[in-house]
Amino acid sequence: MTLFNVAGLRLAGPLLLFGGAFVVGPAQADWVLPTGANVQLGGGSVRLGCTDVQLGGALSLSGGSVGAARNVQVTAGAQLDVGAGTVDLAQQWSNQGSVSVTTGGVTRVASAGCPVVGSAGPVQLSAPVPVTVSIPGSSGGTAQVLVSGTGSCTVVPGSVQISNSAPALPANAATPLGVLRFNAAGCTGASVTVQVTYPVGSLSGLTVRKYGPFGPQPAPAGWFSPPGLSVSSGSGGDVVTYTVSDNGDGDSNSNVGEISDPMAPLWLGAAAPTPGNVQAVPTLGQWGVLMLVGLMGVLGVRRLRPLSSRRAA
C-alpha cells in the first residue's frame, strides 16, 4: 500500500488531486490523520470512495466537505471542526474526541459501493452528558442539566448556566431557583430535549415557564408553557422536561441552526418563597418598631392612671 502526504494529510491508497478536491480511488484506502497533524480543508472537499477516516489530530473543514466515507473515527484527543461544512458517511460514527458544529452536520447516507449500516439521516455527534450547575441565591444546591439534540445538534460547551439574571418577569413573579440558559449549535431543522433535575421538593409552589418568541410569526417574546413540558417528583429530585426546536417557540436565537434557551420555575405570588417553601413572615422596619414601642408605652400609662386614682381614694 502506497502512502501519500498532501498538505499534512497522511492517506493510504491511490490519490488524485484536482479542483480543490481530494479523491481517493477505489482501491482499499484509509484517510489517516495521526496525532499532531493539523489540517484545514479551506472550503475544499474530500471524496473517500467508501473508505475510512481515522482522525487522531485536528481537522477543520472550513466550510468544506468530507464525502463518501465508510466509517469515521475521531479518537481521544482528536479535534474535528465541522463548522458549516458537512461529513457524509455510510456506516459507523465513533467520537471519543471533540467535535464542533455551527450550521453544518454529519449525515449517514449511502454512496457508491457503500450501503447504509444503521439509521440513515443526521448523526448524533456524541452521547449527551449531564452538566451539574449551581443554583444561585439562598436556595442553594445544584441542578443536573441534560440537553439531548437530534442529529448534529449539540449543546455548546460551557454554555449551560443558572443565574439570577432574568428577562422581564410577569407582575409579582420571582425566580427563586434562578434562570437556566444554554446554547446549542448544529441544529438546523432539529430540536433539543431538555431535562433539568432540581433538589427534591424545590419545585413545590412554582410554575415552569420558558422565555422567548412564541405564537404566530412575527412572534413576540414572553413567558409561556414550553412544548412537551413534563414536571415530575421523585426520590431522585424534581424533574422538568421540555423541547425546543430551531427557530421554534422559545428559541431566542434567530440564526438558523442555533438555539438559545432561557427557562425558569417561577413563583407567581406577591413574594418569593424562602428555602424549604416556608412563607416569610412580614416584619416591621426600624421606625415601625420604635412607633410600636411608643404606642405600647402610651397604652401602659393610660392603664395605670385609673389604678392610681382608686388607690388615692
Rank of each mutant, 00 (worst) to 15 (best):
L89K: 03
L125S: 07
R303V: 15
S98R: 14
D261H: 07
P115N: 05
V129R: 11
G64Q: 00
F18N: 12
D251P: 10
T188N: 09
P128W: 07
G44L: 15
L48S: 11
G222F: 14
R70G: 08
V72N: 00
A190L: 02
L146P: 01
G300H: 00
A174P: 00
V147E: 04
G215M: 10
G186W: 00
Q73I: 15
A313L: 10
P262I: 10
S245D: 05
D81S: 10
D261G: 06
R108K: 09
F18Y: 09
P136L: 06
Q92V: 14
Q91P: 06
L206S: 01
P213H: 09
V131S: 11
G178R: 08
S230G: 01
V131L: 10
T243A: 11
Q92G: 00
V72T: 03
N172E: 13
G228V: 14
R302K: 10
G215L: 09
P176S: 14
V133L: 08
G83S: 05
G104F: 02
V101A: 04
L206N: 03
L268M: 15
G57Q: 06
T154N: 07
Y198W: 15
V99E: 06
P227C: 13
S309Q: 12
P122Y: 06
A313N: 00
Q217M: 03
G288H: 09
E258L: 15
L41P: 01
W223C: 05
P122K: 06
L304R: 12
P265N: 05
G151S: 03
V87I: 11
P167C: 09
V99R: 10
G49F: 06
N71H: 13
G186Q: 04
R303F: 10
